[in-house]
């Protein structure tokens, strides 16, 4: 037996064999008390109210929803702290990804006790992916031009990817469409989502920009069939 293992043995609590303790719970935090999820509006099926699992996109903001499980007690007032503010900067309840790297995000009671913490990675995005959001909330990647009818609304979501990996957080994204006479960009409540309204027949280009990244979508707007034509087709 090596001196190292002897030393470990010597440091093992003797009577209750307390090394059999286990940190219980099922949270995402290192101390198994906290669960951190994206901020989603209730009922928004297109929003991923999933756990924050992936790296944050550099430049993105995360508005986390934190739930903490303390049996027998409500959670005391807590605030967020960052271990490395040059990587992850906390402003109130906003977490900003400043630079690539890693930092612990700590959930600290206002009297200075750490309830839990989560190591968060930050990665530079390399591509903006455009997804179409269906009426039922399902999303699918848009890789080719889209044909739409006048008056049709298309919901789009821009997702930052880093070498193919989906990055978390909300990036400041600029949306535009040209020409404006063919289609119009409508806000959809979140920076990464928009509704595109097809206004008149013609070709248009939807441009999405986030920092140095840009993604484009060709849109072809067709005139909506007239009532007589629709009747003829249905026959």
């Amino acid at each position: 037996m090596s001196s190292w293992s002897l030393n470990r043995l010597a440091r093992t609590p003797i009577l209750p064999i307390a090394l059999t303790w286990a940190i219980g719970g099922c949270g995402a935090g290192a101390l198994n008390s906290a669960v951190v999820a994206n901020d989603c509006k209730p009922g928004d099926k297109g929003c991923d109210a999933s756990l924050v699992n992936g790296p944050l996109a550099e430049g993105a903001t995360l508005d986390p929803r934190i739930s903490i499980d303390l049996p027998g007690s409500t959670t005391p007032a807590i605030h967020l702290e960052s271990a490395a503010p040059d990587v992850l900067f906390v402003e109130g309840d906003h977490v900003r990804a400043r630079a690539p790297g890693m930092s612990a995000l700590l959930f600290v009671t206002d009297d200075g006790t750490v309830i839990d913490f989560l190591h968060v990675f930050v990665k530079t995005p390399t591509r903006l992916s455009l997804d179409r959001i269906a009426a039922d909330g399902a999303t699918e990647s848009v890789t080719m031009s889209m044909d739409v009818l006048t008056g049709e609304l298309v919901r789009l979501r821009a997702t930052p990817l880093g070498d193919g990996q989906v990055l978390e957080g909300s990036l400041p994204i600029e949306w535009s469409v040209t020409p404006a006479s063919v289609a119009e960009v409508l806000s959809d409540g979140q920076a990464n989502k928009r509704r595109i309204l097809a206004k008149a027949p013609g070709a248009a280009v939807v441009t999405v920009k986030a920092g140095n990244l840009e993604s484009k979508l060709d849109l072809v707007v067709h005139a909506r069939p007239t009532g007589s034509l629709a009747l003829e087709v249905s026959r």
């Binding site: 009577l15 064999i17 303790w21 940190i23 008390s33 600290v108 006790t113 309830i115």
Partner: peptide
């Protein structure tokens, strides 16, 4: 360094 609030499973004893 900060104090932390840990959750321990009960001792087997």
């Amino acid at each position: 360094v900060l104090p932390a609030y840990l959750k321990r499973a009960p001792s087997p004893w």
